[in-house]
């Protein structure tokens, strides 16, 4: 039995289209005949390529979201933002220090933050963006790294910020500094890298290289599997 699809009205760059209810913005635009050359990647909410802004009929708010994750609603005004122009500071991680001035030295514009919270409201990952910028300003690298951990660099915060800050680059520097200089070192990783460098696994690898695809497949299927940890999902 074929049920009649319920259609909704959307406006893409000002032109009206009717598209089936329940589609994501990305699919709805494709349904309407647009083709993504830039501005789409994983289609699963991880890559940050599909930044989009929209308004709804009768609502003053400007919403910011990921096109691949947001379902269309009747009366949406849409446009895609395939790219955010942003300057990234140039640094050599090996040579810089992680102190309370590093972030503000490389990105002095973070001092312009007026705490308007627009970035936080814009973030599709629901991060405390304002808080990580503020942590960066006061030199709290660890906190900035922690708060920005799930950033997918979609650029929406930077497009909305009245202080013209490029949040995700600041955050990336914070995480790099944290990883290199501040986070406690993982001992088992160091040990394993050393073992690899010393050739502990060379013989075993060589042996495997000689095996046929069939044998490898069998080995793969019979491998030890670590118990799967519960992963947070998009809907959390």
């Amino acid at each position: 039995m074929q049920r009649k699809m319920k259609m909704v009205r959307i406006y893409i760059m000002g032109k009206e289209y009717r598209v089936p209810e329940g589609l994501t913005i990305m699919k709805a635009m494709e349904y309407a005949g647009y083709r993504y050359i830039r501005g789409a990647g994983c289609r699963a909410g991880f890559c940050g390529a599909c930044a989009t802004v929209y308004r709804k009929e009768g609502d003053y708010k400007l919403y910011a979201d990921l096109a691949c994750q947001t379902t269309v609603e009747d009366g949406m005004y849409l446009v895609q933002l395939p790219f955010t122009p942003a300057n990234k500071a140039i640094y050599d991680l090996e040579k810089i220090k992680a102190d309370d001035k590093t972030l503000v030295n490389f990105y002095p514009e973070i001092a312009r933050c007026v705490s308007c919270n627009t970035c936080t409201k814009a973030c599709p990952q629901e991060l405390d963006v304002m808080d990580y910028i503020q942590a960066s300003l006061r030199g709290d690298i660890a906190k900035a790294a922690e708060l920005s951990f799930d950033c997918i660099q979609c650029g929406l915060c930077a497009l909305r910020c009245p202080a013209e800050i490029v949040h995700y680059h600041v955050a990336q520097l914070a995480r790099r500094l944290y990883g290199k200089y501040l986070a406690p070192k993982a001992k088992h990783l160091e040990k394993r890298v050393k073992e690899i460098e010393e050739g502990k696994f060379d013989a075993e690898l060589k042996k495997m290289m000689k095996k046929s695809i069939e044998e490898l497949r069998k080995m793969y299927n019979a491998r030890d599997i670590e118990p799967e940890e519960e992963m947070p999902t998009e809907s959390d």
């Binding site: 001035k101 503000v104 030295n105 002095p108 514009e109 001092a111 312009r112 300003l137």
Partner: peptide, 22 residues
Amino acid sequence: KIGKVKKNLPQIAVVSATRKYT
């Protein structure tokens, strides 16, 4: 140009300068 100011100034100085000069 806030990007051109001397490095390692206290936060309080940099923030003030952004407010008054940009």
